[in-house]
Simulated scan of single mutants.
Amino acid sequence: MNQDNEMTNNRATKQNEDIDLIEVFMQLWRGKWIIALFMVLTIILSIAYLFVAKEKWTSEAIVTYPDSGQIANYNNAMSVLYNQNPANAPTVVDVQQRFFSRFNSAISALSQQLGNQIRPEKLTITPAVKDQPIPLIISYTAGTAGEAQKTLTTYIQQINKRVVTELDNDLQISINSKVEDLKADLATQEKVAQEKKNRRLQMLNQALIIAQQANIKDTRVQQAETLSEDTLFVLGSNALSATIKNEATRPLPFDVSYYQTRQSLLAISALKSKPDSTYSLRYVMKPDLPIYRDSPKKSLILLFGALMGIILGSVVVLGRNMLKTR
């Protein structure tokens, strides 16, 4: 009996719930014009919002390491600078990484600076491939599509020019420092050569005195190159006097390293920077002109407005009927 009573109660409860749902639906149906009015009003408000809302458009560019041709002048200059120590010269890959890492740091600093302004600007840098340092996606958000593309292009060009200028200045400093070092090296070698020449004159003069005192006028040996400094007097006073007389016009005795240093100095002094033909990045994709705006989304806002109108209208209809019932 108890089970039969429970089943009967459950059926009655279910019927009451069905009746309540049907009643709610009928109330909503009777108030459909009110719901429709609210929906129209909220759609109108959504359209008004679309007219006054600030639009956002995002332009994107993809950049990576510069090509070898874009850094050829800088790379050639580094090769000349390290001509005496080629093993220490940076490779093309090293130069590419140097330029692009400097660009990446500068554009990241600019992004933070723009974000901290009174009127913040949105410039973002993200990897194009996850967990890969290159290439990079650089994006800029503005009020119009054209403004976003133009501003992004301007910022990238400005950073590129700044990086190239900074590295070119570093290159000039290195060139000037290397020129000064080579000049100092040459001056040292010339001083040593002059000292060697003066010492040779002293030895010849001493040998001449000995030859005169020994009354040796003519050479008494056939192979003079085998003579030591102490036996030069055997050349005779006549030969020694002629040698001393012409020694003043004799060039300084330089070794091979002097001429190698001289060659390096001439090559480095002739270096000329070409920053206009040097780049710190290469475009995989230039700043594009966005086709779709980021916000506001027209379809979503209108759909949300219509949904809110239906909800508000339904609340009003059900609330009014509830008040009447009470």
Rank of each mutant, 00 (worst) to 15 (best):
F25E: 07
S228H: 08
D18R: 14
Y279T: 12
V315E: 05
N76H: 07
Y82H: 04
Q15A: 13
N85H: 06
V95P: 05
S105I: 13
Q260W: 08
Q96E: 01
M39D: 07
Q172G: 05
R250G: 07
A72W: 11
K297E: 10
S174H: 08
A87R: 12
L81R: 06
L167R: 06
L45P: 10
N76R: 09
T154C: 01
Q117V: 06
Y49C: 03
N10I: 15
D294S: 06
R98Q: 14
S68D: 15
R282Q: 13
P66R: 09
I175K: 01
Q113E: 15
K298H: 11
D170W: 07
Q222D: 12
Q263G: 15
A224T: 01
S273H: 00
S79N: 05
D4R: 15
V52K: 09
V80G: 00
A224L: 00
T231P: 12
E180Q: 14
V316I: 13
N83S: 13
Q84V: 02
Q132E: 04
E225I: 05
I216Q: 10
T219D: 12
Y283A: 06
T151Y: 04
G143K: 03
P133D: 04
L204H: 06
N246I: 13
L21E: 14
E190G: 03
K286Y: 01
I216A: 10
R250Y: 09
Q117I: 04
I134F: 11
Q132H: 08
R30E: 11
P287I: 02
V221M: 03
T144D: 09
I71R: 02
G69W: 04
V192I: 15
A128C: 08
Q113V: 00
L232N: 05
Q223A: 11
R30L: 13
N176A: 05
Q158D: 08
M322H: 14
N88M: 12
S139M: 07
K217H: 08
S314A: 09
S280Q: 01
S111N: 01
E225F: 07
Q213R: 14
A72Y: 11
R162G: 00
